[in-house]
Design a binder for these strands. Sequence first.
DNA 1: GCTGAAACCAGGTAACC
DNA 2: GGTTACCTGGTTTCAGC
Lengths: 152, 152
Amino acid sequence: MDSIDKAIIAILQRDSSTPVSEIADSVGLSATPCWRRIKKLEEEGVITKRVALVDRHRLNLRLTAFISVRTAHHSEAWLTKFAESVRRIPEIVELHRMSGDTDYLMKVVCPDMVRFDKVYKKLISVAEFSDVKSSFSMEDLKSTTELPLDYI
Amino acid sequence: MDSIDKAIIAILQRDSSTPVSEIADSVGLSATPCWRRIKKLEEEGVITKRVALVDRHRLNLRLTAFISVRTAHHSEAWLTKFAESVRRIPEIVELHRMSGDTDYLMKVVCPDMVRFDKVYKKLISVAEFSDVKSSFSMEDLKSTTELPLDYI
DNA sequence: GCTGAAACCAGGTAACC
DNA sequence: GGTTACCTGGTTTCAGC
């Protein structure tokens, strides 16, 4: 992966609807080799998918919350089952197994506190926790899917 | 926004490279009216952008961390300047103004602890904090850009 | 073996019903 | 919202470097 691939990824991370010919111009290549590089990046799994991003406010998702939990269960089987359950809850968009004080950290999006409480209840119904803490985002100041390309 | 629009969004959130004709089939429409709906969703800002998602491991971004900070400064001017500075740090992919114990919560991606410390130093160089806590993700169990469509 | 020109074809876009 | 036609842009082939 050279600097041209990096430049291609930079463009596609920002706007994947950019025509190949335009990307080719930007990186100083003609369309065909540029297209082949994109194809290769997709085949090799560097580019995993192309998605449409949606304005969460337009979907009535005005509340963003973080739930951190502790649990007494630390088996592989418990983790697998827990992760699988969380993957089925669409309001929980992230789940991290953490080091330190909390065992798991989740990011939740939903319309309001009433709906948040429903997600919360759904969550505590799928697994047992010894401690649960919720904190709420008042303002989304930065949120991007663009990853830094400085380390390749 | 009706159930057809919802179905269209569901498909595009999952894979924005799906051909319009295929989407049209799925939602029981012919290509043109389906395309018109997609165009409208984009114009109205429901669909904000189309992006390529990249495997962070392939970009050498193996460390995910959360930094929560407290600050003594609570003016609008300070917030604006702080947010602007953070937006210029590519390793910080999320910044939330929080309620409760912490004032701001950030999500950071970088290769390792050494690079994390550099981001940390960059962060404390752009703003003054009274308290800074870092926690680290050991395992990414769920991470999606697909938002729940149950509330429209 | 990789690049780019040109031909080709799928799919996005527009006009019309 | 559908049908048809058009035309941009993605994809393949092939010649040249």
